[in-house]
C-alpha cells in the first residue's frame, strides 16, 4: 500500500490538537496532475496540490479558474482526462460519488441542492451510510430493526440541527428555507456522514454576515473538535484569510501559489491574477 502513497507536501503539516494519532505527513487528499477538457476548453490543467489532514485549506482564484470543476473531478461528478486523486493514500481517481462518500469524502454545492419537498429532518436522515432500511426487503420483513435504526437517525438529525441552529425548521420542507439556511443544511448534511474531509463550494455565497459568521464558527468548531478536514472555495477574502491555512490560489486551471494567508495576500502573482484585478476594478 505504501508505494501507492503520494509524496507528502511540506506545506501542509498542521498539528491536530487532541488527535496525536493522525499522521500529518500523509496528505488526506492529494491531487496530482489533474486535467479536464470540455470540448476545446481546458477547465483544469495539470493541477496538483495536497490537503493536509486536519487543515482548513482555502481554494481561491478568479472566476473560471477551474475551482468548481476541480471539486467535480475530486467528488466523482466528472472523470478527469488525466491525473490522479488520492484519498488517504488510496487511489480514488474516477470513483463515483457514492463510493467516495463511503470513503469519507463529502461535498456541498455552490447552489444548494436540497431535496425540496422532503422535510429538513428527512434531508438529514437520508445521509448516513449503512442504513439497513435502504434494502427493499428489510422494511417489509424486518420492520423492528429498521424502526430502531430510524429512531437513532432521527435523534442524530435532531442533534445536528441543534448544532447548526436549524432545529426550529425540522419539520419544514427543505425547499421553503432561505438561501442561507440551505447553506447551513448543506453543512449539516455532511455532519450526518461523519466525514474525513468536506469540500465546501462557496459556503458564504449569498449568505448575510451574521449567518456567515455562524457558518464560519461551525466550520472551525468541527475542525477543532472532530478533526474534520475542510477544503473550501470562497470569494470572501476576509473569511478565507481568517479561516484558512494554507490558501491555494488557482488560475487558468492550475495551482498558481500555495502558502499561509499572509504570504498569499502579498504575492505579486496573486495580486495580478486575482486580488489585484479585483481591487483595481473596485478602485477604478
Amino acid at each position: 500500500m505504501s508505494d501507492t502513497r503520494p509524496a507528502s507536501s511540506s506545506t501542509g503539516s498542521v498539528r491536530l490538537p487532541g488527535r496525536p494519532d493522525v499522521d500529518t505527513n500523509v496528505p488526506l487528499l492529494s491531487i496530482q496532475g489533474l486535467t479536464k477538457d470540455f470540448g476545446g476548453l481546458r477547465a483544469v490543467n495539470a493541477c496538483s496540490f495536497d490537503v493536509a489532514p486536519g487543515s482548513i485549506t482555502g481554494l481561491i482564484g478568479p472566476n473560471g479558474a477551474g475551482k468548481t470543476t476541480l471539486f467535480s473531478l475530486v467528488s466523482g461528478f466528472h472523470r478527469p482526462d488525466a491525473g490522479r486523486v488520492y484519498l488517504d493514500g488510496e487511489d480514488v481517481t474516477g470513483l463515483p460519488s457514492h463510493l467516495l462518500f463511503r470513503k469519507g469524502l463529502c461535498r456541498t454545492f455552490q447552489i444548494p441542492r436540497e431535496h425540496k419537498s422532503m422535510t429538513v429532518t428527512e434531508n438529514l436522515m437520508l445521509v448516513p451510510k449503512g442504513q439497513i432500511g435502504e434494502r427493499f426487503w428489510n422494511p417489509v420483513l424486518r420492520q423492528g430493526a429498521v424502526r430502531a435504526q430510524e429512531r437513532r437517525l432521527r435523534e442524530k438529525a435532531r442533534e445536528v440541527l441543534e448544532f447548526v441552529n436549524l432545529d426550529h425548521l425540522a419539520d419544514q420542507p427543505a425547499g421553503a428555507m432561505s438561501g442561507g439556511q440551505k447553506k447551513l443544511l448543506e453543512l449539516a448534511r455532511t455532519l450526518m456522514a461523519d466525514p474525513k474531509i468536506v469540500l465546501l463550494d462557496e459556503p458564504g455565497a449569498g449568505v448575510n454576515p451574521t449567518l456567515m459568521g455562524r457558518i464560519r464558527e461551525k466550520i472551525e468548531q468541527l475542525n477543532r473538535e472532530r478533526g474534520i478536514t475542510f477544503l473550501l472555495i470562497e470569494h470572501d477574502m476576509p473569511l478565507v484569510m481568517g479561516l484558512c491555512n494554507p490558501v491555494i490560489v488557482m488560475n487558468q486551471g492550475s495551482k498558481l501559489v500555495e502558502g499561509p494567508p499572509s504570504l498569499v495576500k502579498s504575492d505579486p502573482r496573486v495580486l495580478e491574477a486575482y486580488l489585484g484585478g479585483q481591487y483595481a476594478a473596485l478602485d477604478g
Binding site: F77, L126, F136
Partner: peptide, 27 residues
Amino acid sequence: RAIRSPWGRALRAVREEEASAAMNGKD
C-alpha cells in the same frame, strides 16, 4: 412499508435531486 422507510426516502431523494443523492452516498 417499503415506501415509508429509508428505501422510499432514498427513491424520493433520487427523484428530486440526483446529484445530491449521489453525493450523499446513494447509488
